[in-house]
């Protein structure tokens, strides 16, 4: 019973892939388990792991967010600009979160309020946000306060602080996943017309999903700022496509309604690990993207096909189980 629940979960294939990739990475480079390597790995990935949760929120309501990369970049360069203007960390942190929420609310207003196509609307905002980011800081530079950067690149009790922070992010996610909002968003994502007929405020829920996604974008931008320690308008650009790839590998459906944030994070872990491994086994950087691309494609195919198969098996099992229960009743 428990076993079936595990393998029929939408994030199961991504979990297997991530575990395999981790084992492979460790066999290639056993030194990865040292605290130093773990710090390096987790700080480089923290922004992506956080951003993929934002993408998951957008996808869940049958949307998509093509502006995540630009949004994280804008938060990043804005945070650095605020630091340079003399703002203390205690003021910059809430400011970045508010900026993230505002960006999310903008996307939400376009998709939920004006009912623009999510793909195109967020594509358009990605232009706006990237333009603003480039206007604030055309080239990489600036500096974040050293103590904060040191903290994020440090460890407590042998565990990287970046990972501890991400546990907090996951706790926040757990709250969202247990909320009324979440199940209603899933209803909207599965079938907006039926959700509306059921009396749900569909457009508000879509607005909410993007706004909350903005919170994770803001957090991601903050983490990127403190991990990198500088502002770079192009650093986070790949996040847009990586978060989509990670979420889909993690079992989040592109047509909304199904999947989980944890699966999406596992997918993002897998996506991040493939390039680390490619580097680790000494593949020339020129071949790296080709290899990573092929692995991603194969991963996607495996996840989607196996997910479909497992779902069928699990439905069949559910029907049988309920038939038995019905006989007993």
């Amino acid at each position: 019973m428990m076993l079936r629940q595990i393998w029929s979960h939408s994030s199961f294939p991504a979990g297997v892939l991530a575990a395999l990739a981790l084992i492979f990475a460790l066999s290639v480079n056993p030194g990865l388990l040292t605290t130093g390597s773990m710090i390096g790995w987790s700080t480089s990935q923290l922004g992506l792991w956080t951003a993929v949760l934002g993408q998951t929120l957008a996808l869940m309501g049958r949307g998509i967010d093509l502006s995540i990369g630009s949004a994280v970049s804008l938060v990043n360069v804005s945070a650095i600009a605020l630091f340079e203007a003399g703002w203390p960390l205690t003021a910059v942190v809430p400011a970045t979160l508010v900026l993230g929420l505002a960006i999310g609310a903008l996307n939400g207003a376009l998709v939920g309020g004006l009912r623009l196509n999510p793909l195109l609307a967020t594509f358009a905002t990605s232009f706006v946000l990237l333009g603003l980011a480039l206007q604030i800081r055309p080239a990489p530079g600036g500096m974040a306060p050293m103590p904060a950067v040191m903290f994020l690149n440090g460890a407590s009790w042998g565990i990287p602080n970046a990972m501890l922070l991400f546990v907090l992010v996951l706790l926040l996610w757990a709250l969202i996943a247990a909320s009324l909002f979440w199940i209603r968003l899933r209803a909207v994502g599965t079938d907006p017309v039926r959700a509306w007929n059921s009396g749900l405020p569909v457009q508000w829920l879509k607005f909410g999903s993007y706004t909350l996604a903005g919170l994770f974008t803001g957090l991601s931008g903050l983490f990127v700022t403190l991990c990198v320690g500088a502002g770079d308008p192009l650093f986070a650009q790949p996040y847009t496509l990586l978060t989509i790839a990670g979420a889909v590998i993690g079992g989040v459906a592109l047509n909304g309604g199904s999947g989980s944030g944890y699966g999406a994070v596992l997918g993002a872990v897998f996506v991040g690990l493939t390039s680390d491994i490619a580097l680790g086994i000494g593949i020339s950087p020129f071949f790296q993207q080709l290899i990573v691309g092929c692995v991603l494609l194969v991963g996607l195919a495996i996840v989607v096909l196996s997910g479909r198969w497992l779902q069928q098996k699990s439905n069949a099992a559910l029907i049988t189980a309920s038939a038995h229960r019905g006989e007993r009743a």
Binding site: A178, S179, L180, W182, I183, R184, G199, L200
Partner: peptide, 13 residues
């Protein structure tokens, strides 16, 4: 119960 789903503190299911 989708539309009338009971909540705790108005937020959590």
């Amino acid at each position: 119960v989708l539309t009338d789903m009971p909540g705790r503190a108005g937020l959590l299911r």
